[in-house]
Computed example of a mutant assay.
Amino acid sequence: MLNEKFVITIEVVPPDGPDPSELLKALGKLADLAFYGFSVATNPVAKPRMSAMALCALIQRHTGKPAILHLTTRDHNRLSLQGELWGARALGLQTVMVATGDFVALKDRHHTTTVRDADVYDLVGMAREAGFKTGVVFDTHPESNGLPQAVGHLKRKVDAGAQFAVTQPVYDDAGADAIAKATADINIPMIMGILPLRTPRHAEFLHSRVAGIAVPETLRHRMHAAADPVVEGAANAREMLAIARQRFAGACIMPPFDHYEVLDEIL
């Protein structure tokens, strides 16, 4: 992965049940598009989903493309993390994305606990020792002007062994330029996150309710004014992919709500 000139991955959210057949069918239809492989989330927004490791193995078998396993400190103690890493290697996975994991919602904390007896820096080291190409998340918290702090965290992750980083979704040239300049002296590939917008409500929700994402006012106006918001969202995603090719080592496209068909318009 890290040797390719420009890497495009597609993020996949596992199903909320034991049957992956419909998802695998949708992903199989993408196999002829020009991208490297799939990046498989693990229990996003702290809700239970099918094992990301199991789905990675199924995706590789079904599509012939590589799958990147997301692994969080939220869900496992050190014993389990080590077992997950060895199991993933045994299943033929080569790359992991290491993260702390989304916080468990307050209303769920009476029946769901967070583990985190290892931190993200520990897990980066464990993944490298297990022989993985190891990536991390770069979250600038634009809602609180968190770019300088994010750069500091990223440098610590690189010191721990991180080999690439994926940003949270970026929606305009100014945001991409700020990240590119702030990370210019960090000697790892930076992959830009791209999350296509679906509706004006989707844009407003991401901007106001999702930490780490800022949708510029001009783009929100575009979505409200668009005759077809889905087409407008895909157009912005294409714009961001072009910007990523100029400033970053790759892009991770995150199709919303399992709408993988939008990738035909973007790629």
Results as ranks from 00 to 15, higher is better:
Met1Gln: 09
Phe6Leu: 10
Ile8Ala: 01
Thr9Asp: 09
Ile10Met: 11
Glu11Leu: 02
Val12His: 09
Val12Asp: 03
Val12Lys: 11
Pro14Met: 05
Asp16Trp: 04
Asp19Arg: 11
Pro20Thr: 02
Pro20Tyr: 13
Leu23Met: 11
Leu24Tyr: 01
Leu27Cys: 04
Phe35Met: 06
Tyr36Met: 01
Phe38His: 11
Thr42Pro: 02
Asn43Ser: 07
Met53Ile: 13
Leu55Gly: 03
Cys56Glu: 04
Ala57Gln: 12
Ile59Arg: 01
Gln60Ala: 14
Gln60Phe: 01
Thr63Leu: 09
Thr63Ala: 04
Lys65Gly: 08
Lys65Arg: 15
Ala67Arg: 06
Ile68Ala: 07
Ile68Cys: 07
Arg78Val: 10
Arg78His: 11
Gln82Pro: 00
Leu85Asn: 03
Leu85Cys: 03
Ala90His: 05
Leu91Val: 01
Gly92Ile: 03
Gly92Gln: 09
Leu93Pro: 03
Gln94Val: 00
Gln94Phe: 01
Ala99Phe: 02
Ala99Asn: 08
Phe103Asp: 13
Leu106Phe: 07
Lys107Phe: 07
His110Ala: 12
His111Phe: 15
His111Val: 09
His111Tyr: 14
Thr112Trp: 02
Thr113Gly: 02
Thr113Lys: 14
Arg116Asp: 11
Asp117Leu: 06
Ala118Gln: 12
Val120Thr: 15
Tyr121Ile: 13
Asp122Leu: 05
Val124Pro: 09
Met126Cys: 10
Ala127Trp: 12
Ala130Val: 03
Gly131Leu: 08
Phe138Gly: 03
Asp139Thr: 08
Thr140Asn: 10
Pro142Tyr: 08
Ser144Ile: 13
Leu147Ser: 03
Leu147Tyr: 04
Pro148Tyr: 01
Ala150Trp: 04
Lys157Ala: 09
Val158Thr: 05
Val158Ala: 00
Ala160Trp: 03
Val166Asn: 05
Thr167Tyr: 12
Thr167Asp: 06
Gln168Gly: 00
Pro169Thr: 06
Pro169Phe: 09
Tyr171Ala: 11
Asp172Met: 06
Asp173Trp: 09
Gly175Phe: 03
Ala176Glu: 08
Ala182Met: 10
Thr183His: 05
Thr183Gln: 07
Ile188Tyr: 06
Pro189Gln: 03
Pro189Thr: 06
Gly193His: 00
Pro196Met: 05
Arg198Asp: 01
Arg198Val: 15
Pro200Trp: 07
Arg201Asn: 13
His202Val: 02
His202Gly: 04
Ala203Tyr: 03
Glu204Thr: 08
Phe205Thr: 14
Phe205Val: 14
Ser208Ile: 01
Val215Tyr: 03
Thr218Ala: 15
Thr218Asn: 12
Arg220Glu: 10
His224Cys: 10
Ala225Arg: 15
Ala227His: 12
Ala227Glu: 15
Gly233Val: 04
Ala234Asn: 12
Ala235Lys: 15
Ala237Glu: 05
Ala237Val: 08
Glu239Asp: 15
Met240Trp: 04
Met240Val: 07
Leu241Glu: 08
Leu241Tyr: 07
Leu241Pro: 10
Gln246Glu: 15
Arg247Leu: 15
Arg247Phe: 06
Phe248Gly: 09
Ile253Phe: 07
Met254Ala: 02
Asp258Ala: 13
Glu261Ser: 13
Val262Cys: 04
Leu263Val: 07
Asp264Cys: 01
Glu265Val: 04
Glu265Arg: 15
Leu267Ser: 08
